[in-house]
Structures are given as structure tokens and as C-alpha cells.
Design a protein around this nucleic acid. Structure first.
Length: 451
RNA sequence: CGGGGCGUAGCGCAGCCUGGUAGCGCGACGGUUUUGGGUACCGUAGGCCGGAGGUUCGAAUCCUCUCGCCCCGACCA
């Protein structure tokens, strides 16, 4: 993309309504525009990152064998009356009526609807296991939206639902989700720690929240520092392997890690003192096994091998897709702006032309731009008629992890500068070498994609 | 929902107390200049002062109501 033809309304000054750094940077980098309290338009740059994140979530869900579909945002109140949640949910649920005065709601989640889909078509144990998921906009009418997309009212969420014959099978689905989530977050350059969570009104012991450590996190967390050494990495796994799934669950959840909701001082005291940590975290996902709560209430049953009709065991598993942008920025920024991890960056590399209008720098930049695209990379070429300082400031603000700087000085020796946004380190290399280096840098990102 | 605060140009703000019909910085646009970290100078455009009602000869300014937004708290992916 050529910046002169793009739509990137960056702000030089901080909008006063934004208190935390991710909100401020998203507004300044022209990623979002607030339209109403807790409701945002996604401007091109923000939309691009949102899509990259969605793509990773889709890939990792499908790699785990989960099946995508799409359910509507508006739901009939009747389904929710069946489960009893229409009255239980409270004012956070946005209720409305259509022209026929039928009660509708903007879905805050989809357990009822997916259960309805399941019961309509599935009646045999032979169809199990099954996990359906979608990435769809949700609405929760928060009393006090804040922190930009971290706690909006409208938000994009991936929610998945497993249907299994037995509790044991459902717990394997639970483990499968845990593994897929670990992979998902790592691909986004995040460390999200599974922490024992509170089952809330639904109850149940099998639930973990995934938290990204950040000073601005909404939850206080307590953990054994050893847990931050755990990496999923690129290990090969078989999502059907029950023992392997259980082993990974134990590996990642055996050390103490809890939010204030479930924190237990006595247990925490058993962690060696030098490893005890108290910090803040941002919740970016949750996995949950809840048994037969909805299947019983809504008649989602299957016939077993022996001819018996039983309610299916279910769980639901969410990733806060839009909130992840905020979480990533909270975890990765400096005083100049955002620093995108390679896995989610809106553009792979920025090209800064220091002397726009100069024949040699213009043509060198054009050539780089063309060749980077031909190499499968997505460059942003700052071809505006601006001074170097303004271009650098924009690149730093929007956080592209790599920058190629092209100026007449270097070009005289066939050199451009390749600069890392994260470290600030530069090297003077030929344009061809720069392209090769970027291909190498992004090779793991492309290799992680699932087709 | 309890407590506090703010709505004046695209963004950040002053003016309000002590009514006289709107200003500054940044940005945008046009020029000159400049060219390796938001350059300098000149010029231009842009606002029914959130909305409604009231007081007054006259309201951004005073009064009433209303809408919106932000912060702290309780609540939440």
C-alpha cells in the first residue's frame, strides 16, 4: 500500500478521553474511532490487524479440528427463555423488539443458539465429538465501558462449543482448546497464562482464563514465576491424542496461577517466596466445561450405543478477538508508539523515502515496493511529500516491526537501512539483502499458517 | 447504578466568575523554504460555542431542563 493513497488519519496529540496506553495509541494511529460509548468503527489500519488476529484464531481452531460456522447477532428471546437465562442475564443484555413486538436480543453469547442448532440435526453418538465455533460480534451493555476496545460494549469474540458423549470426552475437548489457545496466543507474540478461574453463576471446576500480564490489566493475578518460562513453541501435537492433551494441560496448569477471584493465600504460600509474583493481567480468553446444563434444559440429547438417550456434555470457549488488539498493544509499545509482533502486524514492513521527488530514491523505493510484494510480503510505502522526521514518527506510531529507510546518501553506495522497531537497531545493506532478510524474518510467520 | 467532571474549529485548549455576538496551539489547504527524527515563515479555509427553553436591549457567558462523553467505585470477555 502506498501511504499517499491509504486512509490513515493519525493524530499528533492525545485525545483526552483515552486514559490507557492502548486506547490512546489506537486512536492516535488511526485504527479506531469511537461512535458511541464502547462502540467503535474500525478504521483501515485497525481493521487490518483485527483481520490478522481473526485469521490466526480461525487457523488454530481448524487445526484443532473445530468447525467454523456463523450465527446471527440478533437472537429470539424464546431460546433464552428455554434456558432460563432471559430473566437471569440482567441489564447487560441488550433487549429490543421487532415490528411485530417480538422480543429479541443482541446476543452476548451463543450457548442457546448453538444448542438449538445441535439438537435440530444431531441425534446419535456417532456424530460426536463435535465442536462448532464462530467469530461474531457480541454486545454486552456494560454499565461503564472504558479502555477503548478492551472493554467495549460491542466486541468481536470467537466462541466455540463442544458436544461430547461423556464427561471424559468433553474434558479432552477442554484440553484441546487449551492447547489451541496456547498456540494462538503465541502466534500473536503474546504470553497468555492459563489461570484457574471462577465458574461464575454456571459453576463448575473446569475453567481457566488466559491472562496477558500488563500493568493496566483489570485483574490482579498471583502466580509462580516458573510459569512464565513455559513456551508452547512449535512442538508437533496430535489433537486426537487424549494423553498428550492431558499432559499439556498439566504442564501448563500445575503451577500456581490464579486471579483474585480464586486466589488462595494458603496455597500461594506454598510457592517458594522468591518465585511468588503478584501482578496485573488482561483476560483474553476463557475455556469452560459446564456439563449438561444447556443440553438438559434444551433437550440436546443423543442416543448411545446401547440405545439410551442422554444429554450431551458441553463446554464453551471464548477468545476476545477485538480485545486482543488492546492487550497486544499494552504488552508491546514504547513512548513513540505501538510495536506490533510480526504475527499480527498490519504491514510487514514500512518503506520510508527520505527524499520524495528525487529520481533515484523514488525509483529505488518503487522497486523495493514491487519486489517485496512479489515476495509475498505486505509493505507500506510512505511516499508522502513529508519530511523525514514526520515519516519516522508515523512509522514509529503505527508500529510496523521493520522499516526500510531509503535516502540519497546510502543509495550512492547501493545501501538502504533496515531497522527493527523493537530494538531500534539498524543495518546498512543492499536493497536485495533487505528483501532477503525480511523473507527470512517472516518465514516462521508464514510457516505457522494452517491451510 | 453511586460519586465527580467535561461538552467552544479535525485534535488539544482559553474565553464563562465580572453578559456586548469567539480566540490560541497543532492539524488541513495554498505558497516560499527546507530535506536523515513531527523545519521555518507568509497566507487561506474551517465554529448556529452539545440541544431546548428562560432571563435580558443583548447570552459561549446567568437560570432551568435535556442529551452526550470521560474519570473513581461496584460489575464484567
Amino acid at each position: 500500500m502506498r501511504l499517499s493513497r491509504y486512509f490513515l488519519p493519525v493524530l499528533k496529540e492525545d485525545p483526552k478521553e483515552a486514559q490507557i496506553v492502548s486506547h490512546r495509541l489506537m486512536l492516535r494511529a488511526g485504527m479506531i474511532k469511537q461512535q458511541s460509548a464502547g462502540i467503535y468503527s474500525w478504521l483501515p489500519l485497525g481493521y487490518k490487524v483485527l483481520n490478522r488476529i481473526q485469521q490466526i484464531v480461525h487457523e488454530e481452531q481448524q487445526r484443532a479440528g473445530h468447525i467454523p460456522l456463523l450465527m446471527p447477532t440478533l437472537q429470539s428471546a424464546d431460546l433464552w427463555r428455554e434456558s432460563g437465562r432471559y430473566d437471569a442475564y440482567g441489564d447487560e443484555m441488550l433487549r429490543l423488539q421487532d415490528r411485530h413486538k417480538r422480543d429479541m436480543l443482541y446476543g452476548p453469547t451463543n450457548e442457546e443458539m448453538v444448542t438449538d442448532i445441535f439438537r435440530s440435526y444431531v441425534s446419535s453418538y456417532k456424530s460426536l465429538p463435535l465442536t462448532l465455533y464462530h467469530i461474531q460480534w457480541k454486545f454486552r451493555d456494560e454499565m461503564r465501558p472504558r479502555f477503548g476496545v478492551m472493554r467495549g460494549r460491542e466486541f468481536l469474540m470467537k466462541d466455540g462449543y463442544n458436544f461430547d458423549l461423556t464427561k471424559e470426552d468433553a474434558l479432552h475437548a477442554y484440553n484441546r482448546h487449551l492447547v489451541s489457545y496456547l498456540r494462538t496466543y503465541e502466534r500473536m507474540g503474546l504470553q497468555a497464562i492459563p489461570m484457574r478461574a471462577d465458574g461464575g453463576p454456571i459453576g463448575g471446576d473446569y475453567t481457566h482464563e488466559f491472562l496477558v500480564l500488563a500493568d493496566t490489566g483489570e485483574s490482579e493475578v498471583f502466580y509462580d514465576s516458573q510459569i512464565t518460562d513455559l513456551k508452547f513453541g512449535d512442538r508437533q501435537i496430535d489433537y486426537d491424542d487424549v494423553a498428550q492433551g492431558q499432559a499439556i494441560l498439566e504442564e501448563f496448569t500445575s503451577r500456581y496461577a490464579r486471579t483474585d477471584e480464586t486466589h488462595d493465600e494458603a496455597l500461594f504460600a506454598q510457592v517458594p517466596e522468591e518465585r511468588r509474583r503478584t501482578a496485573r493481567g488482561i483476560e483474553v480468553g476463557q475455556i469452560f466445561y459446564f456439563g449438561t446444563k444447556y443440553s438438559e434444559a434444551m433437550g440436546a440429547t443423543v442416543v448411545t450405543e446401547t440405545g439410551e438417550r442422554v444429554p450431551v456434555h458441553m463446554g464453551s470457549h471464548g477468545i476476545g478477538v477485538s480485545r486482543l488488539l488492546g492487550a497486544i498493544i499494552e504488552a508491546s509499545h514504547d513512548d513513540k508508539g505501538i510495536i506490533w509482533p510480526e504475527g499480527v502486524t498490519p504491514f510487514h514492513v514500512g518503506i520510508v523515502n527520505l527524499k520524495q521527488g528525487d529520481g533515484s530514491t523514488d525509483s529505488a523505493c518503487e522497486a523495493l515496493y514491487r519486489e517485496l510484494k512479489a515476495a509475498g510480503l505486505d509493505p507500506l510505502y510512505d511516499d508522502r511529500d513529508e519530511r523525514a522526521g514526520a515519516k519516522f514518527a508515523t512509522m514509529d506510531l503505527i508500529g510496523l516491526p521493520w522499516r526500510i529507510t531509503v535516502g540519497p546518501r546510502g543509495l550512492a553506495e547501493n545501501k538502504v537501512e533496515l531497522t527493527s522497531r523493537r530494538t531500534g537497531e539498524s543495518e546498512a545493506i543492499s536493497p536485495q539483502e533487505a528483501i532477503e532478510r525480511l523473507k527470512t524474518i517472516y518465514q516462521p510467520v508464514f510457516a505457522a499458517a494452517y491451510h
